[in-house]
Design a protein around this nucleic acid. Structure first.
Length: 550
RNA sequence: GACCCGUUGGUGAAGCGGUUUAACACGUCGCCCUCUCAAGGCGAUACUUCAUGGGUUCAAAUCCCAUACGGGCCA
């Protein structure tokens, strides 16, 4: 049996050979320097924070080089696959507004000329290349069972040697075609392994775009390339896909750095030109003083839906991610507040070499800043959409009191130094509920009266204020002027400085008087500007709320 | 266990042999601001210090080596 016949026998019924695919997926017609990049998630459940991180980073690279960003779905591990997995990925990218040039656009459809973008649909393609390798004696069937491999591992452990299927441990690599054929005829199960031409004693150097020069021993392990189920392993699929899709830069987590020798070797064996590699570190989390990668199982923030639920605006989220990608982003943004996220140019040089910790405080800060800068109407619309899904009670109020809500959100908004009260959509209602009449049914004992607690004194202040000083039409200055006059009349200091110098001359001060009014209106002693509250509530409601205490 | 990568403040980090008395941002803590809060302003926040020890150099956070610790990967 010739090698060719052998290959035909092992990989039968293949419609096309590799030449066909090489022609079918020609080099992309792009400008010099254009980057073709991708993100390659597995449909194994919710989308991981790290995938989004990678998405933001890579999308920027493609945009800034007039290149291509595509999503390839790696579903070769069918055991871990989850229903709706593909849809979840599509939705996530959509929700975060990260558009892609090629990839799946629904469970069934895709866009782009270099597909299929779902690995399970690429079986034929992988097989064509496996066949080619067999013909060239660079791949062979391996009959070693899982039990045997287990034993082998054990043996290597005892000898304190390296693990894996290599050298004399790779017992099937030198089987003759006849011997192998015999085994197949006997019904023995097999996988296809790559026949590594490497020597562990040789060192090879790579240039990683993030880590710099990396020196590693050559790979000599005969990795499985085609599993028993006919699907390729990660290594092989990566090499074939990124070649055919003409990826120019493979950007992936540094957990892949140690398989680089394998990949480079496979590119060579297949006669492909290897892409450039960048291995930034993944985002970590600290637990018990130790750092580890954010884990899908243990950390709620690994699930990007969590941020949606909390109501962190996607813009803020992406900004945060960008600061992790390139820490100079923030400074740049301060200088270019009008620019879009993708106007910033990501560079490999500034990517994380060591893993950075996830910092929710920082996310909150970015979120606050973002929410402070949008208009009240825009904020309202965002709250409307968010509450529809996550807070129906608030949603009802938003529908019923659109105008009022916008005024509330508009308090001290705009201008150079806006208020920054809200850190997320979910945190709005807890800070403004008291403005809605139907929610304002607080028992008197829960009113947060502070310095001035005496009921008759409270009643007196409120009565005097309402009858003598309150005027709906007052401007802020007029209003505050009247507050001062009232304080003088009632024996409270109208000027805080005077009060601080001679507190014994007064019953109290204007701050305490304001607090009485504030608490009477809201039950809380901490609220935004009193003047704005008065304005929004209006005479009728003020009277009603006061009457409970007078 | 083999191999690889990393280690600058509470956090993200800048720094790429002299201009570093280690930028900037978040956090924290003070003080200031014609009402509380938020915001804002000002200041403080890395044991002459960049994991530790040694070396190269006139000069090192920056270059080299070793150790420690952390992470990854192989199974």
């Amino acid at each position: 049996m010739t090698r060719k016949e052998w290959a035909d026998f092992l990989v039968p019924n293949i419609k096309y050979d590799r030449e066909y695919y090489e022609k079918k997926y020609p080099k992309r017609d792009l400008n010099e320097g254009a980057m073709v990049v991708r993100v390659a998630p597995s449909p194994t459940g919710f989308v991981h924070f790290g995938t989004l991180f990678q998405g933001v980073m890579v999308h920027n690279l493609a945009k800034n080089s007039n290149g291509v960003f595509y999503i390839r779905i790696e579903d070769t591990d069918q055991k871990r696959e989850v229903e709706n997995g593909v849809e979840q990925i599509i939705e996530a990218f959509q929700f975060f507004g990260i558009d892609y040039d090629e990839g799946m656009i629904s469970e069934k459809e895709e866009k782009g000329n270099y597909g299929p973008y779902l690995q399970s649909k690429r079986r034929e393609i992988y097989c064509a290349y496996v066949k080619d390798l067999i013909e060239k004696d660079l791949a062979y069937p391996s009959f070693t069972t899982p039990e045997e491999l287990e034993r082998l591992r054990h043996e290597q452990e005892i000898r304190k040697g390296r693990m894996g299927y290599y050298g004399h441990y790779a017992k099937d690599r030198n089987l003759s075609i006849e011997e192998a054929l015999e085994k197949i005829k006997n019904g023995e199960k097999y996988v296809i392994r790559f026949k590594s031409p490497g020597n562990f004693e040789n060192k090879i150097a790579f240039q990683d775009l993030v880590k710099g020069k990396v020196v590693m021993p050559e790979n000599d392990i005969d990795h499985i390339i085609l599993k028993g189920d006919g699907l390729p392993t990660y290594h092989f699929a990566h090499v074939v896909d990124d070649h055919l899709m003409h990826t120019t830069h493979v950007v992936r987590g540094d957990e892949w750095l140690s398989s680089l020798p394998v990949h480079i070797q496979m590119f060579e064996a297949l006669g492909f030109e290897a892409p450039k590699y960048a291995h930034p570190s993944p985002i970590m989390k600290e637990e018990d003083g130790k750092r580890r990668k954010i884990s899908k199982r243990k950390d709620p923030e690994a699930d990007i839906r969590e941020f949606k639920k909390i109501g962190i605006p996607v813009e803020a989220m992406k900004q945060y991610l960008m600061t992790l990608v390139n820490s100079n982003y923030e400074e740049w943004y301060e200088k270019n507040p009008e620019k879009e996220l993708d106007d910033f140019k990501v560079t490999f040089k500034k990517m994380n070499i060591s893993g950075s910790l996830f910092d929710m405080e920082k996310v909150i800060n970015l979120s606050k800043n973002f929410l402070a800068k949008i208009t009240a109407e825009e904020f309202y619309n965002r709250l409307f959409l968010w509450s529809e899904e996550f807070d129906s009670e608030f949603h009802e109020l938003l529908i019923k009191y659109k105008k009022e809500t916008i005024s509330i959100l508009n308090i001290e908004r705009g201008g150079e130094k806006p208020r920054k009260d809200y850190s997320s959509y979910s945190n709005v209602y807890p800070s403004i509920w008291y403005m809605y009449d139907e929610k304002f049914n607080v028992p008197l004992e829960n009113y947060e009266f502070d310095k001035i607690k005496d009921k008759s004194e409270i009643s007196k202040i409120l009565t005097v204020y309402l009858t003598k000083y309150y005027d709906e039409k007052d401007s802020q200055d007029e209003w505050f002027g009247k507050m001062k006059v009232m304080c003088d009349e009632l024996g409270y200091a109208s000027n805080m400085k005077d009060y601080k110098q001679n507190p014994e001359n007064y019953k109290g001060n204007i701050a305490e008087v304001s607090t009485v009014i504030r608490v009477a209106l809201t039950s809380k002693k901490q609220t935004p500007n009193l003047f704005d509250i008065l304005k929004i509530l209006g005479a009728k409601k003020i009277e009603e709320r006061f009457s409970k205490l007078i």
